[in-house]
């Protein structure tokens, strides 16, 4: 059996070893490769005097059990002394207020999904879908389907320069726009939920809904 070293990289530093573990691959693959590497390679490095080890998990979200699983494998090698375990937090979790910007068109049959808040520079055409765990802001025409707060966030909103969707969804609430939407004056609007019902309002009224917003009051 040959394993290409893509998930686990071992680097030597002045006073020990650094294990760089890939944060994109499946966790199981990572464990098996780590096991394989410790058992089959670098024999002369991994046996002998005690070596200090730093483990870097990257930005993989790991539970305590998973962390232990990694450490158990390393502990199995008698001479490795674990000095530190470093795991960066998942960037999307750290910055949940950030607005992720995408440009382009979502055409019929295409799906744009984002974890967090989304700003789309472009149109969503009929048959196209935008889903998002947070808010959806569209600088363009929303003619397709938009689903904000897919994971159940009822506070999420959907705003668009031209709001004429085939369907709107926020959390579990589904709304078909009434036909008169199409002919309304074309000002920027947003959709939100109050008491489980979809409401539409002009964008400048968002302040009333979102108390925490930074409000510009003039100088």
């Amino acid at each position: 059996m040959t394993v290409k070293s893509k998930h686990v990289r071992i680097k030597g530093i002045k006073d020990g070893l650094v294990f760089l573990l890939d944060d994109k691959c499946p966790f199981e693959d990572l464990l098996s490769e780590l096991r394989f590497k410790l058992e089959h390679s670098h024999q002369n490095i991994l046996t002998g005097p005690i070596v200090h080890v730093d483990v870097k998990l990257g930005s993989r979200p790991v539970s305590e059990e998973e962390k232990d699983a990694v450490l158990d494998i390393l502990r199995g090698q008698g001479n490795l002394l674990i000095r530190s375990v470093e795991a960066l937090e998942d960037p999307s979790v750290v910055d949940s207020d950030a607005l992720y910007m995408v440009s382009g068109m979502v055409r019929s049959g295409q799906v744009l999904h984002h974890q967090g808040n989304l700003l789309l520079l472009g149109d969503v055409n009929p048959g196209g879908t935008v889903t998002c765990s947070g808010d959806i802001y569209i600088l363009g025409a929303l003619r397709g389907m938009a689903h904000a707060g897919v994971e159940g966030n009822e506070e999420a909103i959907i705003a668009a320069s031209l709001l004429s969707p085939t369907q709107l969804r926020i959390a579990d609430i589904i709304s078909r726009p009434p036909d008169e939407w199409e002919t309304r004056e074309s000002s920027m609007e947003f959709a939100y939920l109050t008491n489980g019902a979809m409401q539409i309002d002009k964008i400048h009224n968002m302040v009333k809904l979102r108390q925490g917003l930074n409000v510009f009051k003039g100088v």
Partner: peptide, 8 residues
């Protein structure tokens, strides 16, 4: 609608 899909 179908043209849009094809363009995509």
């Amino acid at each position: 609608r179908d043209a849009d899909r094809i363009i995509g």
